[in-house]
């Protein structure tokens, strides 16, 4: 038997051995799937996919249930998350929420300082004249969130902007937020999300 044949046989059996020991634990398997879009550690690459790292666990649970029940119905929710959440059990949802909430957050992205300053003011003070309350009153002084108030700090700004737009147009129902964003202009949105991504 040639040494070439032996080498092939040996590497094939090593390969098959490795294959047979694939990671099978249900949480691990599901995480790998979520990870292809959101990053296995909850820090995603493309801003189409929100970061989940350090997100509030109760908020994650609430959203996954909203996708599953199809009550969060903005276009990307339908295109991506309705399917993904449809077969998740309540137990799996709480394990996923727990896992992602414990991952270290994505680092902030510092761009456009003037816009950041404007966004910070809006976030902390709101705009009384337009009836916009301070975002910080619900999302926390550092946008870290609390329970079902989502963390916004370090989130991709294009994702946040898209959410503000779909919440404003009520494609995404978020009762508490509708009043808040009703009078928000697109420029104000851009400023506040630029600030949030910098955190």
């Amino acid at each position: 038997m040639s040494s070439r044949f032996l080498a092939v046989a040996l590497s094939t059996s090593l390969y098959l051995g490795a294959l047979a020991h694939g990671a099978d634990a249900p949480l691990q398997k599901t995480l790998v799937t979520c990870g292809t879009c959101h990053g296995i550690n909850g820090r995603s690459v493309s801003p189409t996919f929100p970061n989940l790292a350090a997100q509030q666990a109760p908020y994650i649970e609430l959203q996954l249930k909203a996708f599953k029940e199809q009550t969060r119905a903005d276009p990307d929710a339908q295109a991506y998350m309705w399917g993904m959440a449809s077969q998740l059990s309540d137990g799996m949802i709480s394990q996923l929420a727990d896992y992602f909430s414990k991952q270290p957050p994505a680092p902030g992205k510092l761009e456009k300082p003037a816009l950041i300053a404007q966004g910070k003011r809006l976030f902390e003070e709101g705009v009384a004249a337009q009836g916009i309350p301070p975002c910080a009153s619900c999302h926390g002084a550092h946008a870290e969130g609390m329970a079902t108030f989502p963390r916004l700090a370090g989130q991709h700004s294009p994702y946040l902007l898209k959410q503000l737009l779909v919440i404003q147009s009520v494609l995404r129902t978020a009762p508490v937020m509708h009043g808040v964003v009703k009078n928000l202009t697109k420029d104000q949105m851009q400023a506040v999300v630029t600030y949030l991504e910098s955190l």
């Binding site: 490795a18 294959l19 020991h21 694939g22 990671a23 949480l27 691990q28 398997k29 995480l31 790998v32 990870g35 296995i40 550690n41 896992y99 414990k102």
Partner: peptide
């Protein structure tokens, strides 16, 4: 036929796949 193979890292610290 494809599968993810555990290459030693625990899910909590996983940065390899």
């Amino acid at each position: 036929y494809a599968r993810h193979v555990d290459i030693g890292s625990r899910p909590e610290s996983q940065n390899h796949s």
